[in-house]
Amino acid sequence: MPDLGLDVLFKGKNMLRLLGGLWTAVEISLIAVALSIPLGILLGIIMTSKNPIVKAVTRIYLEFVRIMPQLVLLFIVFFGSTGALGWNISGELASVIVFTAWGTAEMGDLVRGALISIPKHQYESAAALSLTSAQTYIYVIIPQTVRRLIPLSINLITRMIKTTSLILMIGVVEVLKVAQQIIEANRMTSPNAAFGVYLAVLLIYFILCWPISLLARRLEKKWG
């Protein structure tokens, strides 16, 4: 049987170190998600505005953040802010900024989509039943919007967690970076460690994201 280098995982504190790296990634995505959701809801509501200038500005923001590869955004914020503005921000902070900007854009678009997908006659029949516009939003529109939104935003969370694997490029020691360090450290004793360690990373991401995406699918079915 070929040596898959799985033994490296059980040497010393390697497994714990991997999980520590995972926590860094999860922490950054959780902070970014926690900021993105309220900001995204706000942006989404603003995006349904009929004002053409507001529409154009939010649209440009959305397209810019979405079209730019996340890695480029990370480089701009991390290296660019140091070079151009003389700020010395940490990799973690740069990651939170980029992921929040990206998450807000994506979340905003989801909220906008959910809001405009509520048919006009829902507003009208609520009005004809003499509900005030605040009551219409609280009891009719928002509950329907949230039901459409939750599965989609859960998917966004898994995408954000996965994309944190890029932040090793700006020096943040997250799970993938720890994996590289472990492989490097064991190059002499287990030259094949790469397979086993990266396999472990893959499984870790899977175990983390799979339940989340199952939950999303379940909610989608329940409310769809």
Binding site: H121, S125, A128, L131, Y139, P143, Q144
Partner: peptide
């Protein structure tokens, strides 16, 4: 509008509420 009941062509029930809750929403809230 409480004095004027209106029924539309398109099915305008609220999809996230049961039949009874659909009926009760306006009497209870409005």
């Amino acid at each position: 509008r409480q004095k004027i009941g209106m029924v539309f062509q398109s099915y305008d029930l609220f999809p996230h509420l049961s039949v009874l809750d659909n009926i009760l929403l306006a009497p209870v809230k409005a």
